[in-house]
Simulated assay, not measured.
Amino acid sequence: MGMRVRAMGALRDLIRSLQKEAHPKPANPQSLPSLRRAFSLYDQINLIDNVPSDQLRFQRYTDTGFTVNGVDYEGSLLCVGNMLMSWAPNKFSQITTDSLSIFRTVRPVPEILILGCGRYIEPVSPELQRFIRSTGMKLEAIDTKNAVSTYNILNEEGRIVAAALLPYGMSS
């Protein structure tokens, strides 16, 4: 009986140590977590490291920019599928139908436009909502932290998605 109790205690200790290894505390609280992880008792495999080179992957955000596929970008970004470009607005009030006019011509039309509003979610004007609907896209206006994660997930799924992102430190 005593041997069985010791074995159970050793098993419990092994499970705890494996759980600690599998869920380390992030060093940088603004780093984005990997979206595809598989855990086993022996190792941790991160499948997201094998993202195709032509697929965009946001790895980090800061108050002034983003890290995408290992490259740092300052300022606002516009992403359409796997195309990335600098975007003029540097505060939410500068987002207009003109600043999003590229969506009048982009084909195929993305399913959804993820609007990263900066640190806080901002209300989208009815005019801008009408414009986005007229292009055939749905609109999701959320804070930038969640916008980049949502973009990563949808893009990894192979969905046609667009994102208009203000850096996290920007707002109204």
Rank of each mutant, 00 (worst) to 15 (best):
R36V: 15
N90Y: 13
M1N: 12
F66C: 01
S101L: 10
K145T: 11
Q19Y: 12
Y168C: 06
T97N: 15
A22D: 10
L47E: 06
R57N: 00
I121A: 03
L35R: 10
Q19S: 10
F58R: 00
P123G: 05
E127P: 00
F66H: 04
T105P: 00
R16G: 11
N28W: 14
M8S: 15
W87S: 00
Y61N: 01
L128N: 00
L11Y: 05
V71D: 06
Q59G: 06
N69M: 02
S93A: 11
G9C: 05
E74S: 05
I121F: 04
Y73G: 03
R36G: 03
D13L: 09
D143P: 02
T64V: 14
G2R: 02
V5G: 06
L41F: 15
A88C: 13
S101Y: 06
A88N: 10
I160C: 05
T105C: 05
A27K: 06
Q129R: 07
V5P: 01
T97E: 11
R37W: 11
S171Q: 13
F39A: 07
F92N: 02
F131K: 00
M85C: 02
G136A: 06
D43M: 11
V161T: 15
G116A: 07
L78C: 11
D49S: 02
N90M: 12
S86L: 15
G81E: 03
A7V: 08
N28E: 15
F131A: 01
T105M: 10
G169K: 10
S86C: 08
A164Q: 02
G9F: 04
P89K: 07
Y151D: 03
F103T: 04
K25P: 12
C117N: 02
A88K: 09
S40W: 08
V109P: 01
R119T: 13
V124H: 07
I15L: 14
R119P: 07
G118H: 08
R36M: 13
L77I: 12
V71L: 10
S99H: 14
S40P: 03
N152T: 13
L78I: 14
L165G: 00
S53I: 04
I132Q: 00
P33V: 12
D143G: 07
L84D: 08
S40R: 10
E111T: 05
L139P: 01
T97F: 11
A38M: 15
S134F: 05
C79G: 01
K20N: 04
Y61V: 07
G169L: 09
N28I: 12
D49T: 08
